[in-house]
Design a protein around this nucleic acid. Structure first.
Lengths: 230, 230
DNA sequence: CGCGAGTACGTACTCACGGTATGCCCACAT
DNA sequence: ATGTGGGCATACCGTGAGTACGTACTCGCG
């Protein structure tokens, strides 16, 4: 009863429904903190970025920071999650509209290559992520964002090849491709000419995919210890 | 003249030729520092390991540490280089004796998979390396050790397939495989049953290699934009 | 409209840790 | 035998993460 009329009693602000002024202000400073932290972490790295610099950039004090986050690492995690989810969204967007699994794969590849060239993704996710979060948390996070996309692509490709593998092997394939593309991303963003490097990567990966297609057409069976001639 | 009789004038110790007692003592403490640092870095990570703990473990003081190393990061680099060179040596040893490039590749794969399961390699090189050393230094180091081995394998495989690619594309292939194997190593060491996981990895990689062999036999040309059907 | 309550911060401090400055001691060359 | 410098120990400093506590303003209610 007393709650039913909340929408009238509490002052509302157009942008964010269901929030009081206090909550809005709070959310604003929290966002400012994450924004500034993302920028400074990307520029100077985690260790070299002091909380003082962050709160100064956000024009607040440490009291505010420690009100919203339990510490420096928690703040980093907030930044990390945002960068990761943005990346995952970008990739997912690129996947949409492709029905053919091979096209889907190349589209996903291109999207991933562009994501992996963003400074913030490189620095925060790839470079600092494992060290700051620890390997376990890092993998958990990736598992349900970027890696999930790769896994989906691999599934569709494997399905297209009429291969029916168990879950573990599928995951292994996905891991391998994920690592391959991460490394590929490095060779792109580290190159003096990223465009040429990106073309090389697409050629290389495309060639691997072509090998798969060839095997699919010739109806090779995929089982442990199978394909290798030894 | 005065130098010609050095071998008689300076006290020698059997184990290390050409070193005075002082130099030996010095080398011993330096080694102790690196040993303890490697252990603690592996256990608790870089940030969570204090210099006080290291010097206590090595039974020296910070004066000794700063005499041998310019700082914490320099000490880490010494540890890093040792772990990396050990890994490279192990892989190179596994490569010896194999003439057939495909056998060589699988042998290298197995060696790499075992290396990547060592806690110290995982923690110091993979997890902390990029963050502590920075991406540039990290890649420099890998370039001339572990990655060099992968590159060599890729070269021999490509040569066996009669493919003649330019340097950039070869490097790209090597990068991709390097990343693939790194990731594969994770899925092995992170699995509840590493033996099964390792078998899965070998199956997956073997399958990719089989795809290559298939393409090689059918004489596919490898050029930018070539193999993909799109 | 005021008023108690609690949220959202600000301020001032602590303490751990990386790094530095300085001095001592003993092996080593002469 | 002796000075000299390498090899280390000790004492100190600055920075920065985290904490304790104070304060003001918003909110919900009578």
């Amino acid at each position: 009863m007393s709650k039913s009329s909340v929408s009238k009693l509490v002052p509302r602000v157009p942008g964010v429904p269901g929030a009081t002024r206090r909550q809005q202000y709070s959310a604003t400073t929290k966002r400012a903190l994450v924004d500034v932290a993302e920028e400074l972490f990307t520029e100077n790295g985690y260790a070299a970025t002091s909380l003082d610099a962050i709160v100064a950039g956000a024009e607040v004090t440490k009291g505010a920071l420690y009100h919203h986050f339990s510490g420096k690492q928690a703040l980093f995690e907030a930044v990390f999650e945002r960068v990761e989810s943005d990346a995952a969204r970008a990739i997912q967007k690129a996947l949409k509209g492709h029905k053919d699994p091979w096209e889907k794969a190349t589209a996903g590849l291109r999207a991933f290559l562009s994501v992996v060239q963003e400074p913030r993704y490189r620095r925060i996710v790839i470079q600092e992520g494992p060290s700051v979060l620890g390997y376990e948390r890092f993998r958990e996070q990736e598992e349900r964002s970027t890696f999930a996309n790769v896994l989906e692509i691999v599934r569709s490709v494997l399905a297209a090849g009429q291969w029916d593998l168990d879950e573990a092997l599928t995951q292994t394939f996905a891991r391998i491709f994920f690592g391959a593309m991460s490394s590929a991303g490095e060779s792109v963003s580290g190159a003096e000419d990223p465009v040429v490097a990106a073309a090389n990567v697409e050629t290389a990966i495309g060639f691997i995919l072509a090998g798969f297609q060839g095997l699919a057409e010739s109806g090779v069976d995929l089982a442990p210890g199978g394909p290798t001639s030894s």
